[in-house]
């Protein structure tokens, strides 16, 4: 055989590796390629960050659905760990799973790519509105300092506790009890925990003292002030904190960039998205991975629609 004087793959441009890895489709295969050598690991890691989880809620057969924001492909991973559990939401690629078979309920974080599981304390808390539970973590749960927050949203019910937290290895969940606090969403942003209420008041929360640190900002978004719109969620995309507001009347969304770091003010209306359509994901989602979330439309919260009928908030 005519031999050329080079060894093909040692000099392979990483773009070609990207092309081949994308064609593997299955995130497990891509992860496997990450063990081959160091340069492959970086390509595999980069590609895996394009996958986001789609909600499954209750999984009878053990499926977990991933969406590749680059290729727009959908890939299903079937895992025995997911059999007959509630899969609620994800943070840093880890899924919050709850198994109700035996009291107390078994709560875990599961990484469906590596199949690692981290047991969280059993809960004696009865989570309400199970389909609305959401997990956020301060870092990857592999970090022993990681703080796990489970938020249970209760629309329009003030003075109700809605945030539970623990660290992996703790014996029980703790509850943040604050009077007159109607958090609609919480998020870790640059290492701090923030909460927002329906009217756009943004709070910085001191988890360990279980209190508000201070009110960071009150929104100056006219629609929120007129109470024709309410805040839906906080989202982090590429290092920026975004506030998603929904209209009471027209079923539309607007996304506001919270530029409080520099200005301590809200920059209104940076982007507008329509519900029931997928908005274009940012070209480089890795930073926002743990905050990309998928929620059923508000009209059918307990009955998740197929992916194309839900909105992706990125």
């Amino acid at each position: 055989m005519a031999k050329l004087g080079w060894s093909p793959w040692s000099d392979l441009p990483s773009e070609l590796l990207h092309v081949i890895f994308h064609k593997l489709e299955n995130p497990s295969d891509i992860y496997q390629c990450g063990i081959v050598c160091d340069s492959w690991k970086s390509v595999a890691t980069a590609i895996l960050s394009y996958f986001i989880f789609l909600p499954v809620n209750y999984s009878r057969v053990g499926d977990c659905v991933l969406f590749n924001t680059q290729t727009k492909g959908i890939h299903t991973i079937t895992l025995p760990e997911l059999n007959r559990v509630w899969v609620l939401s994800s943070s840093f690629g880890w899924l919050l799973t709850i198994r109700f078979n035996n009291w107390p309920d078994k709560i875990c974080l599961l990484n469906p790519i590596t199949r690692e599981q981290i047991k969280l304390p059993f809960t004696r808390i009865v989570f309400e509105r199970i389909h609305d539970l959401r997990v956020i973590t301060s870092t990857s749960p592999l970090d022993p300092e990681c703080l796990v927050i489970v938020e249970s949203r209760k629309f329009y019910s003030s003075k109700l506790i809605s945030v539970f937290y623990c660290r992996p290895g703790d014996s029980d969940w703790k509850v943040i009890e604050i009077d007159n606090w109607n958090s609609i969403d919480v998020i870790f942003h640059k290492g701090e925990l923030y909460s927002v209420d329906v009217y756009g008041k943004l709070y910085l929360i001191d988890v360990f003292r279980r209190c508000f640190n201070h009110i960071v900002v009150e929104s100056s978004i006219p629609q929120l002030e007129s109470r024709t719109w309410i805040v839906n969620s906080l989202v982090e995309v590429e290092g920026s904190l975004l506030l998603v507001a929904i209209s009471f009347y027209s079923d539309t969304h607007e996304v506001y960039k919270l530029d409080w770091i520099e200005k301590r003010n809200l920059e209104p209306n940076t982007k507008s998205i329509q519900p029931r359509t997928k908005i274009e994901p940012p070209p480089n989602p890795p930073n926002s991975r743990h905050r990309i979330q998928y929620r059923p439309t508000k009209s059918s919260p307990s009955n998740p629609a197929p992916p194309n009928q839900e909105e992706v908030l990125v």
Partner: peptide
Amino acid sequence: VEYVRAFFGIENDF
């Protein structure tokens, strides 16, 4: 992983 390494002729640098 071994198969893939052999397939691409890649040395394990870990």
